[in-house]
Each structure stands twice: as C-alpha cells, then as structure tokens.
Amino acid sequence: MSTTAQRLSVGWVAVFGVLTIGVGFTALLVADVSELLTLTGTFLTLVGLFALVQGVRYTLSGKETDRAHITLGDPEQRKAAPSPGSALTDDVAVIVAGGRSAANRRRKLRTKLRALAVQSLVARRGLSEQNALSKVDTREWPTDRLAVTFLSNTPYPPRDRVRAVLFRQSLDRIAIDRTVTEIETLWNEDEQQQLADRRTK
C-alpha cells in the first residue's frame, strides 16, 4: 500500500481532485468559463450516481465501526474486596447458565458439597465418617428430593423437570440451594439444641 508508485498515483489523483475543485470555483465566479464548460444532464447524473454509490459505501462501512476509547475505571472508588463466597457464587451462575465449563464446575461443586455434608454430619450429628458417607450414599440423608438427587448425581425426577420447564426455573439452582439449606439445618438445629441444653443446665 505504501509503495512509491502507489503513493505517486494517489498523489496524482489528489491533484486531479484539487484541480477539479479549482475549475469549479472559477466556473462559479467567472460566467465565461462556466459557459465554456456547460455540462450535459447525463454527466450531471453520472456524477450524482458516482457520489451516491460512494456515499452508500462509506456510510455502510461507517455504520460498522465501533468507537475506540480508553477505559478509565473508577479510581475514586475503594478497591472492592470479594465476599468469602464470591467465587462459589460465580460457579453457580456458570452452572445455571450452562457455559462451556459448566459440567466441570458442577462436578467440582458437587464434590465440595458432598464433602461438606459428610463433614457436617460427622461434626454435628456425631456420626463416624463411614456412617456419614453411607448415609449420603444410600440417599438416607438429606430428605429433600432435589438435594439428594444433586448430591448423588442422578437425573432429576421427571415431574421436577416438567415443572422446571413450565416455570422456566433452573433445577440445578434449586437443587444446590436446597442442598445448602439442608447442610445449614444441620448446623442450626445443633446450635438450637446446644442453646436448649445450656438453658436446662
């Protein structure tokens, strides 16, 4: 594009353009010149069409260009610290949206919640790890249908699927939420138990 020949030809074209404008101005100011140069209607139309075609071309290419600008951010704001569970919340969002890494993240989250459930059963119900694990494996715990389905990685029951489609809900979101609620209950009921124990003492 920047070879000498090309640059020269571009230069000549530009000179031609300037000359044309010059003649135009002369014609405008000096009536004699304009009489010499009386243009035919056909030529007028041709110039008009040429301009029209170029105009349409440029306008269309202009429509597609996005504006470039510098991103400035918000230095006025304090640098935000994430909440302790923000990464997990992002994971759940990806799982629900079904992005590229959804299956992978779903597997990881299930493993994490399973481990947490077993640990919580051990810590709060006083079960041995073996017993806690088998309780989860045999679907004895939790009692919630969707939570147990999520933890044991089995397909959701058909009626739940139908309902999810009808109400445009994400079964994964509901199941994860219920699973977490079940584990939370383990901790809360124990806490309440402990409070009651303390009162009776």
């Binding site: 300037v18 044309t20 003649v23 135009g24 014609a27 009489e35 009386t38 110039v47």
Partner: peptide, 18 residues
C-alpha cells in the same frame, strides 16, 4: 450563472479527495 455546473465540478473534486 450556471450554478449546477460549477457545483458539480466542486463535488466531483470533493469526492475524489475524500
């Protein structure tokens, strides 16, 4: 005068320069 002739020349020049 002949405004159209002059104008069209002006435009032609402008189109070329653009």
């Amino acid at each position: 005068g002949q405004p159209m002739t002059a104008l069209v020349l002006l435009i032609l020049g402008a189109v070329i320069i653009i």
